[in-house]
Amino acid sequence: MNNNNIEKKMDQDNQLQNLYRRSGITKESCFHSSKRLERHNYLSLFSLIIVAFSLIVLSITTQIYFENAFIITFKKSIDLSMTAMSIFTLVISIIVSKCDFALNSDKFRRQAMEINELRIKLRPHLNSNDKDHVIYKEISDIYLNILSRHLIHKQIDYKISNCESKYKKVLYEIQLFALEYFPYIFIILTSCTLLSLMFYGIYSTEISGEIC
């Protein structure tokens, strides 16, 4: 085997190895995108349920205890809170319907599975002697076709799923939580806090009235 053939074979080996590596990175990023969007779907629906439930309870309670001293004193604040919660409900509903987290999560999962199947087909060629340009071209075209038919994952998905440093991975996960998940948690906690404060205020004034 002359030098040209050796160099050509090495280039082909490098191409296949590089394709195998790149497809592995994309697969892990797609799986993480699927999980991220699935969490978005659960959190958005759960927060929507909590806010809607809180609105119903607040509305019914203010009508039942309309003569309560706490309700009379903080009527404007309660009405303002209910208005803000109604806006939150509308915003969350629009986000859920527009982003379609469940559907996109399934698309990323299917994309990752397709890439994984492609990598299984590619793996035998990495350690064999039948590497040639045709094999690389065929599998590369399939890989590009898969990418063109699906969504593109976010940079944060790549960083978390392919980060080798545990410290950096924790930082990326904190960043993901703060930017994407915390708003849902804030809405849920705010709704529960408003309900708790209102019930506590009503109960306190009722008890005080009975004592007096």
Rank of each mutant, 00 (worst) to 15 (best):
L147R: 00
I115D: 00
K98R: 13
K169H: 00
C30S: 10
E7Y: 11
I207F: 11
D132S: 10
H133S: 15
N18K: 10
S77D: 14
P183T: 02
M10S: 12
L19P: 01
V170W: 08
L189P: 06
L37K: 02
I156M: 04
Y42W: 04
I78E: 00
R36H: 10
K168P: 06
I142M: 09
F186Y: 05
C212W: 12
L147T: 00
L16H: 08
F186A: 08
S86H: 01
L48Y: 04
T190D: 00
T193Y: 08
S97K: 12
A102H: 12
P124F: 01
V51T: 07
V51K: 05
N3C: 03
E28L: 15
S86R: 07
L176E: 13
S148T: 09
N127V: 03
F88M: 10
T73F: 03
I94F: 11
D11V: 15
L118D: 00
F46K: 11
Q63R: 03
K107T: 05
M113D: 15
Y65H: 04
Q15A: 13
S29V: 01
E7Q: 09
L37M: 02
L48E: 03
F31H: 03
L45T: 01
L197T: 08
I6T: 10
I135E: 11
N104D: 06
L151A: 08
H125T: 01
L103M: 11
L151R: 10
